[in-house]
């Protein structure tokens, strides 16, 4: 497993080092996966952070002050059932503009769907294994099953007139002390036809985390959600509908 951001560097070097001028007909091209964020269609960037300007499905005004999440193992699926595996992971972090993954040599073809894992699956979620994620303090406490966070979504919400904090942190679910349940999930979104070097937008509607199917009540689940089994499972269920395919260029 490699960090997809580092992968970008490898590709650049290979391109720069090629000295021959032959120009064979390309059968593959690069893809940049761009993760963008919105609140029910309104674009969200760090400029929108810290302002109580969103209203969740439960009717509570709220803000976002941090959004980081981990995705891994992107697959491009074809109609015949075969697929291309893009091994690697990406820690999306709005505050550092780390919001895209670049991969090259993807065969030109028609892909019927894109899938990826939100978080790490059990095989990949090895405690302390990834030095870049450790350096980012992205770890999930051992007492909660270890490995890594899948998401940190933080901000404030208004309980009538009082501002209160929330920290929607997702990772391995603890059933009871010492008993853990994997909590990653698979996302599948529409496919596309790959005929040129492409930029593929993958959209996250942040509002969906609070909406569907469970109408999230921040008065019930606000902070200390990491050891809260019920909250972890609800996050998993609500996460199902947050991603969709955006523009393909």
């Amino acid at each position: 497993m490699k960090n997809l951001k580092l992968f970008l560097i490898t590709i650049t070097i290979i391109t720069m080092n090629s000295c021959d001028n032959d120009d064979p007909v390309a059968t593959t091209g690069s893809i940049r996966f761009d993760f963008t964020h919105n609140w029910d269609g309104d674009n969200v960037t760090t400029d929108d952070f810290n302002i109580i300007q969103f209203t969740n499905a439960n009717g509570d005004p709220m803000s976002v002050s941090k959004l980081r999440y981990l995705i891994s193992n992107i697959f491009l699926h074809k109609a015949d059932g075969s697929s291309i595996a893009i091994d690697g992971y990406l820690l999306v972090d709005l505050s550092t503009q780390s919001t895209f993954a670049f991969v090259s040599n993807i065969p030109f073809d028609t892909y019927t769907s894109i899938s990826f894992t939100f978080g790490f699956n059990e095989a990949d979620n090895t405690d302390g294994f990834y030095s870049d994620l450790n350096a980012a303090s992205w770890n999930w406490p051992e007492m909660l099953g270890g490995g890594y966070h899948f998401m940190q979504l933080e901000g404030k919400y208004l309980d009538t007139t009082v501002e209160k904090p929330y920290a929607y942190h997702m990772g391995t679910a603890r059933v009871s002390p010492g008993v853990f349940e994997a909590n990653h999930f698979e996302i599948s979104i529409d496919g596309f036809t790959h005929a040129n070097d492409a930029v593929i937008e993958i959209k996250m509607n942040i509002a969906e985390w609070f909406k569907n199917p469970y109408t999230w009540d921040l008065e019930v689940y606000n902070t200390t959600l990491m050891p809260n089994y019920d909250a972890q499972i609800l996050m998993n269920q609500n996460g199902d509908s947050v991603f969709s395919l955006g523009e393909v260029n």
């Binding site: 450790n134 303090s137 770890n139 406490p141 200390t224 050891p227």
Partner: peptide, 26 residues
């Protein structure tokens, strides 16, 4: 250390590192 790492107790690890981050700061 458990108190430091426990979200229901000290909850210090989000900003001050953990056993996999020997810097003990973010």
């Amino acid at each position: 250390f458990d108190i430091f790492m426990d979200e229901t107790k000290g909850d210090c690890f989000h900003c001050h590192g953990n056993a996999n981050n020997p810097l003990w700061t973010d």
